[in-house]
Amino acid sequence: MPSLAELSLEKTVDQVLEKNRSQLLESLKLSFSESQQQLSDSLPELEKEYERILSEGQKEAEKIEKQIVGSSDLEVRNKALLLVEEHTSMVFEKAKEQIKNTKRDSNYSNLISTLLTEATEALGTSEITVFTNSTDKDIVQSAISKISGADLSSEQIDCMGGVKITSKDGSMTFDNTIDARFERMKPLIRKNIAAKFSLGN
């Protein structure tokens, strides 16, 4: 038979155990409800995070799309530009060839006279030395006979046609050869040729 003291101890142990059990249960319940609360609280956070990741992904995708489209557009345009340039140069070469072989007729003589007058006016003096190529020598000689003070140089220049004049003191020069005029007009002519290839206006 247990003694009174033993019974009392057992009762106290039971009481402590009971108290701990109820505390433990209470704490478990609280933890359960807290974790449920946390779970429901984190849902909107999760949704927000999900939205953020989605929108960042979207932004990144748009950025990459812009990059790819941009660089491909440029690449295509640049290739077209090079192609047009190549063909424009071919047109120029062909044109130069034709100009070089132009018949030296009366029209051409008139052209030389015009070029000479223009050049003399630009220098503002008729005391000039005229340079030309071997083909145009005779035409130029006859044109300068009308300008007093003008001499034809024995030195010949390499050009398609036209004249280059220098003041007698050598301080001023005006290049009115067809080559020089061609160079001056090149950007405009180029624009017109490119327009034929449906590029530029």
Partner: peptide, 12 residues
């Protein structure tokens, strides 16, 4: 502006 562009001067 020059009336006719392209005059080249050599006296510097």
């Amino acid at each position: 502006m020059t009336t006719q562009g392209g005059v080249q001067y050599s006296k510097i």
